[in-house]
């Protein structure tokens, strides 16, 4: 019997097709998925009168940055950006303190009730985020924290997902390391900080990227706990801006949309490999 290589192109070959077809399929799909963003980018660089053309113009005939200038006059998007960065990093920094501590305990120490307690962390990982917004809103209200940046961070400071990922990483560090460290007088928290965390660096980076992307994009929670533009994040700022503009001025609306997405997308394009590896790795383990 004739052997065939296990590739898709081999199968296409049998059907009388070749690698070119594979590229064509992928090219078409990629064009379709990329089109919405390029169309918005193009719109954001157009004059208003150039938007209403019978035939769509992908390249702005009179490119301008005026829409972005107008955007900043019409709503404090710079402030929204600062708020978003503060909230996202405020969440991550505390997560990176609480999660390694808990993960270390579950990975390395034996104690009564460890299985049950770890289960508690796992349940939070599976919890649909929108299932707790009503009671959490009431809690934040009772604490007098409504309309603060702190309110947007507080519920995310403990992450079952981070604990789960880090526990896996810590468990892969051989026992010998711990014994050796112990002889050098390095134990407990110092062992966690100087040995375990550096060895788990890929996991820490993966989780950090996912946390940043998740909370940069948060919507419902910031929407219900904020009330004033002074503390709003980019996504909420965009939503309010859309309502205030009630449509029509598409170039400025698209400038706002592009501005909200740009920081993360640029980071993603520069550190593509790291982002893709992180989402792959953490997703698979999750």
């Amino acid at each position: 019997m004739r052997s065939r290589p296990a590739t898709f192109s081999a199968a296409l070959h049998r059907l009388g097709l070749n690698r070119l077809l594979l590229h064509m399929i992928l090219l078409i799909v990629s064009t379709i998925t990329a089109a919405p963003y390029f169309w918005a980018l193009s719109t954001s660089l157009k004059l208003r009168r150039d938007v209403f053309t019978p035939v769509p113009q992908w390249i702005p005939p009179n490119p301008t940055l005026q829409n972005y200038v107008d955007l900043f006059y019409m709503a404090p998007f710079g402030l929204f950006l600062v708020n978003t960065i503060l909230v996202v990093s405020g969440i991550l920094v505390i997560q990176l303190i609480t999660a390694p501590l808990a993960a270390y305990v579950f990975a390395r120490l034996r104690f009564a009730g460890s299985g049950f307690l770890f289960g508690l962390f796992l349940v939070q990982m599976m919890m649909p985020i929108h299932a707790v917004v009503v009671p959490n809103y009431l809690t934040i209200n009772a604490m007098g924290l409504l309309d603060t940046r702190l309110a947007m961070m507080l519920p995310f400071w403990a992450s079952g997902y981070a604990v789960f990922l880090l526990r896996q990483a810590f468990r892969q560090v051989p026992r010998d390391f711990e014994d050796a460290a112990l002889i050098d007088g390095c134990s407990g928290l110092r062992f966690l900080w100087h040995v375990l965390l550096p060895l788990a660096k890929p996991t820490v980076i993966a989780f950090s990227l996912i946390s940043v992307v998740t909370h940069w994009n948060d919507f419902l929670w910031p929407l219900i706990v904020t009330d004033s533009p002074a503390v709003r994040t980019l996504t909420i700022g965009l939503a309010m801006f859309v309502q205030q503009e009630s449509g029509a001025d598409w170039p400025v609306l698209m400038a706002g949309t592009i501005f909200v997405t740009l920081p993360l997308l640029l980071l993603f394009l520069v550190y593509q490999r790291k982002f893709i590896e992180s989402f792959m790795y953490a997703g698979l383990k999750g």
Binding site: T33, Y37, V213, F219, V260, T261, L265
Partner: peptide, 9 residues
């Protein structure tokens, strides 16, 4: 890339 942008956007 759509994973990287907010649902709102």
């Amino acid at each position: 890339y759509p994973t990287m942008i907010p649902m709102a956007a």
